[in-house]
Nucleic acid binder design. Structure first.
Lengths: 162, 162
DNA sequence: AATAAAATTGTAATCATTACAAATTTATAA
DNA sequence: TTATAAATTTGTAATGATTACAATTTTATT
């Protein structure tokens, strides 16, 4: 449970003027590192702030992301997800159960991006997809089924081998 | 302009039975490496296939992505984008004009992902955001405006320096 | 040719997100 | 403090991409 002053510090650090709602939303993300959706944040806070509007949650999370105080994840086809962990790390999404996990990674510098001459890069996101430990068993079953397609997969450098 | 047999080969390589519509859609992606949306594909083909349904475009692109014949990009908040280039590369999206560019990158192995013990990774996507050459001038203007926030940005390893 | 299976189509829903205007709160100036 | 302006929050109504579904058409099988 983060203290209010820690939350306020994060907000001010990124040029966001603190308010009751902003502190609550930023605090929720700093306490819940499960990459919640807008709905999850709203549900988690509406008990303590009964007047809270979902529009405010949408607007505030967009604002926080724009200012760099949180990360906005596009890893889920359906919903945007938000992450208060703004240090370098990648994300993994289980194709079976939909859970999103953090994945520690080395510096992106190691990829030594070429041709960035024309492009000014300000943000980066690395997304992995596959099967989490809990769903691994079913994945193995599927993998067996898809065994025939292996040759195809081998020709595809974007599909990493398990 | 890819020959029909090249397109059919790609479909069969990934276990997709060829049909008039599937060949047209796969062929469109193989001829247009601009990361088109569903709408763009539909508009591009409806002249030559007047009976084409947008639902078919949706279903077919999902099928192709599921089979690994194309990549499905989540880089755009609004629309899914599709890419027939299935060799390792990253993507860049301009925050100003929305254009999506290919970015050559070194092997992801270089990131030496730790803790993948519990996770079975089958796919990966690396997304960059920022400003393209055409929009760079405006970006510079913005960068000047945001100069005060620099200290904050420095404390944030997810925001790469231009 | 008859029947079953697969693919395509069109329409109607779903649902996350945004637009917008009203209401409320906070900051500023007199 | 009080009046006024600015910023924030709220609720409702739109938007718009995607999916569900049932009907139709095409393709494969007996």
């Amino acid at each position: 449970m983060k203290t209010q002053s820690e939350v306020v510090k994060r907000l001010e650090q990124f040029g966001v003027k603190p308010s009751l709602q902003r502190i609550a939303i930023m605090g929720y993300l700093m306490d819940n590192f499960v990459h919640p959706t807008v709905d999850t944040v709203f549900s988690g806070l509406s008990a303590s702030i009964p007047t809270l509007s979902k529009t405010t949650v949408y607007n505030t999370l967009k604002l926080l992301a724009r200012q760099g105080a949180v990360l906005e994840l596009n890893i889920d086809d359906k919903n945007l997800r938000y992450d208060a962990n703004i240090f370098r790390h990648a994300h993994f999404r289980c194709k079976q159960c939909g859970s999103v996990h953090d994945v520690p990674v080395g510096s992106f510098e190691a990829l030594n991006v070429k041709s960035a001459g024309e492009l000014v890069i300000t943000e980066s996101q690395l997304y992995y997809k596959g099967y989490c430990g809990r769903c691994k068993a079913e994945a193995n079953k599927k993998a067996a089924e898809e065994a025939e397609e292996e040759e195809a997969a081998n020709a595809d450098p974007c599909r990493l081998q398990p």
